[in-house]
Simulated assay, not measured.
Amino acid sequence: MNNQIHNLYHKSNKAEKLIIGLMSGTSMDGLDIALCAFKGSGDQTKIRLLNFKTADYTALFRKQVKSIFSKRDVDLEMVCLMNEQIALTHALLINEAIAEWGFKNEDVDFIASHGQTIYHAPKLLHKQEGLPNGTLQIGDGDHIAVNTGIITLSDFRQKHIAAGGEGAPLAVYGDYLIFSKRGEDRIMLNIGGIANFTYLPSDVDPKKVFSTDIAPGNTLMDQYVQKHFDGIYYDKDAAIAKSGRVNHKLLNALLEHDFFEASFPKTTGPELFNLSYLEQAQIETQTESISREDIMATLCHFSAKGIAMAVQRTIGAHSQAKIFISGGGMHNLLLLELLHAALPNVQFETTDQLAINPDAKEAVLFALLANETLTGSIVDFGDREGVPSLSMGKISLPK
C-alpha cells in the first residue's frame, strides 16, 4: 500500500481525530480557522472545539479576490493565479494558527477547506436552457496539503451538485447530526453574506430536514458601506442604519423577486443580491435621491423581512420553535431587533447555548463534513430534490 494511503487509513481510524475546519465567506474579512477534536461519526459524533480564530486578510489580498468575485466577466489569468494564491495564503494562516495554539502540524490529522466561492450559478439564477447548476470555489487543496503537510479535504460543493443538489447550503448535514433535539423544533439560522437556515423538526426525522438560502444577510449592506463610506467594511453596531429611516416603497420593490416565492430548498448569492439589484429598485421607485442612511436602514429591513418571511413559511406564525443564530449578522443589533419584532413567539439563542462558538459554526461544520467522509455512514435524507444523501470532499495528500 502507498505510504500516503496507509497514513490516510491510519488517521481515519483513530479514536479521536484533530481536524481543522476552514471557512472564507462572501464578506472576505478573513479566514475562519477552527481546530476540532472528533470522536465517532453520524449521530454518535462528539465534537470539542479546541481553538478558533479569524485570521485577517491583507488589504491587497482582499482586493485581489474581489477582482474576480461574483462577476460574469473577469480576467481568466487572475482566476487561475488566485486558485493557487488563495491556497498558499490559507496554508500560511493555518501554519501560524497551529503554532500560536501550541500545536505542531503533525498533531493535526486533517484539514477541511471550504475554499473561496467566486461564483455561484444555480439554474434558478442563470436561467440558461440546457445548462446545469454550477458553483466555483477556488483555493487548491493540493497546495494546502503540500504547504502544511496535512491531508486536506476540499471542494465539497461539487459532489452535492453532481448528486442533484445546487451546491448550497451544505449546513443540513452537520446541523442535523449536531443540533437535532427530539421534542423541540429548531431553526439553525446563519446570517452571513446570505442568510440561510436549517430546519430541524422535533421528531428528528432526517427526511423532513432541509437547509435553504432565504434572503440577503449582510451582503448588500456590506457592499453599500464599502462603496459609499470611506475606510469601513461594514456597519458596526448598525450605527448607520439606525440613523436612517426605512423607505417602504424601496423595501417593497426589493422584495419583488421570484426568489422569495421559490420553494425550499433554494440557493442564491451576491450574483443576484448586489448593488445593481439595489439601483434597479431605486430607479423603479424613484428613490435615487434618498439619503445613504435611509438606504442602509431600508437594506437592514430588507434582510430582516426576507428572513422572517421564510421562518414563518416554515414553522407558521405561532410556532414555539427555537432559533439558534450564528454568523456575522448576529452582531447587527438593528437586524436582531427587527427579527424579534417580526417573530414574537420564537425564542432566539446563539449556538453558544449548544457549546459551539457561533462565529466558528460554519468552519466547524466543514470539519464535520470531512469527518463524515472519512469515517461516517451516509444519513438517509430521503429521495428529495436538493437534499442528496452523500459524503463530500476531495482528498489531497501532502506528498
Rank of each mutant, 00 (worst) to 15 (best):
G134L: 14
I138Y: 03
I138P: 00
D140G: 06
D140E: 09
D140M: 03
G141P: 05
G141R: 01
G141A: 05
D142S: 07
D142I: 05
D142Q: 08
D142P: 09
H143L: 13
H143S: 09
A145M: 15
A145H: 08
A145K: 02
A145C: 14
N147E: 13
T148L: 12
T148E: 15
G149R: 10
I151G: 02
I151L: 12
T152I: 08
S154E: 09
H160Y: 01
I161S: 10
A162N: 15
G165P: 03
G165D: 15
E166L: 01
G167I: 07
A168V: 00
L170E: 07
A171W: 02
V172T: 14
Y173L: 14
Y173S: 10
D175Q: 15
D175H: 14
I178Q: 08
I178T: 10
K181E: 09
G183T: 10
D185Q: 05
I187C: 15
I187Q: 02
N190R: 03
G192T: 15
G193R: 00
I194D: 00
T198A: 06
T198E: 14
T198W: 13
Y199R: 11
Y199L: 13
P201C: 13
P201Q: 10
P206T: 15
P206W: 12
F210I: 07
F210T: 07
D213L: 10
I214Q: 07
I214A: 12
